[in-house]
Simulated assay, not measured.
Amino acid sequence: MASCSDDSTNDITVNGLAVVSAKTSFSAAGGTDTIALAKPVIKAYAEDSWATVASLGANVTVTAGLNTSRESRHTTVIVKSSEADSTIIDVDQAGATLKIAAPASIISNDDSKTLSYAASSTLPMTITADSSWIVPSFDSDSVYVKLGANNEGHLRSGHIFISAGSFKDTINVKQEEFAKDIAGTYAILDTYNSTDDNLIYQTAYLRDDNGQKNFVFPTLNLKLPITWSDDDMSVTINGGSLLGTINDGNSVDYVYSVLWDVKQGYLTWSSQISYAASLEYDAQDDITYGMFADNGSWAGYNVSAFRFELFSTNPPSSSGR
């Protein structure tokens, strides 16, 4: 079968040269495969530089380098046994992959331990951490995270950084135990009674009372139930939580948590509405702190403060305020 006088792909007649066997699909890691042809080869080349071609006798080797892109790639290899006999062979290479079966955040207690997660990468991987108590490593099929024992008396957090070609990922690492690192004495800013020149704080003990975590206000003789989340190290206050009662000898009033949109001037004591603060540790000042912020639970409003209010009714109601 004849071909035209130039060597462009469009002018080569396909199947003019029989292929005996060929494996031309590469993983992202690359490699070398052999194409066996029915006749000795006088010329072989690839249309793209990422595939290197060599011939010896009736065999053609195709070598693909490492594909660092996430995209697969395709080229064609043109093989000739004479100017009249030639064939075109498709060559494909898969895109790079990085797979780690680890959560976005690793939450651990204070014990020393080594965690492992199934992993695979077609690219060389770099894995580091920003804290000495986190030691990550990688072998052929797993990522290992070694955590040192937390004996510092406070929560701590760090990050693992993973890089492989164009892949970048970060895993958050948090280590704490409520009784050892979170429970303790806190100062809650009393914004209602404070001024710019005189900030007033209410002392509150954050503690676990038989499974129910509370802020206990000793000077007010009140106990505010809270929900603690290890996932984001947050304290959540719900509206309509009973803190205690006040008895003046004639009547009993009930103290409930009320959430406040200060800007719009609206209050709610719905238990479905909440206000949350994620806790952090400040090494410079050696304090654990958090800032309460709206969490989107009150549609159309922005919770910006919580209040303690008296109600004559239990449960709380508008008529009982």
Rank of each mutant, 00 (worst) to 15 (best):
Y144G: 11
V145K: 01
K146F: 01
L147N: 02
G148S: 14
A149G: 10
A149L: 08
N151K: 13
E152H: 10
L155V: 03
L155A: 02
S157F: 04
G158A: 07
I160V: 11
I160Q: 00
F161Q: 08
F161L: 02
I162T: 12
S163K: 15
A164V: 05
A164K: 11
G165A: 13
G165E: 09
S166N: 11
S166P: 11
F167Y: 12
K168E: 13
K168G: 06
D169T: 11
T170Y: 07
T170V: 07
T170C: 07
T170M: 07
V173M: 03
K174R: 12
Q175C: 12
E176A: 10
E176V: 03
E177Y: 01
F178R: 05
F178M: 08
F178C: 03
A179K: 13
A179Y: 04
K180L: 14
D181I: 05
A183R: 04
A183K: 10
G184K: 04
Y186I: 05
Y186G: 12
A187K: 15
I188M: 10
I188R: 08
D190K: 10
D190C: 08
T191G: 08
Y192G: 11
Y192P: 10
D196A: 13
D196V: 14
D196F: 15
D197K: 15
D197I: 06
D197L: 07
N198H: 13
N198W: 06
N198R: 06
N198T: 13
L199Y: 12
L199S: 11
I200C: 06
Q202P: 00
A204N: 02
Y205K: 14
Y205V: 13
R207Q: 08
R207V: 14
G211M: 03
V216P: 10
P218F: 03
L220P: 13
P225E: 02
I226F: 00
T227M: 08
T227K: 05
T227F: 05
S229H: 08
D230C: 03
D230K: 10
D231L: 10
D231E: 13
D231W: 00
D232R: 14
D232L: 04
D232C: 06
V235W: 00
V235D: 01
T236G: 01
I237D: 04
N238P: 06
N238H: 15
G239N: 06
G240F: 00
S241P: 04
S241C: 08
L242F: 09
L243K: 12
G244Y: 02
G244M: 02
T245Q: 11
T245V: 14
T245C: 14
I246C: 03
N247E: 10
D248A: 06
G249W: 01
N250W: 12
N250H: 10
N250I: 14
V252P: 09
V252Q: 11
D253K: 13
D253V: 06
Y254T: 05
Y254V: 08
V255M: 07
Y256M: 10
S257E: 05
L259N: 07
L259P: 07
D261A: 06
V262Y: 04
K263Q: 13
K263G: 03
K263I: 02
Q264F: 02
G265T: 12
Y266H: 11
Y266F: 06
T268N: 05
T268H: 07
W269H: 04
S270R: 02
S271W: 00
Q272L: 15
S274G: 07
S274H: 06
Y275I: 05
A277V: 04
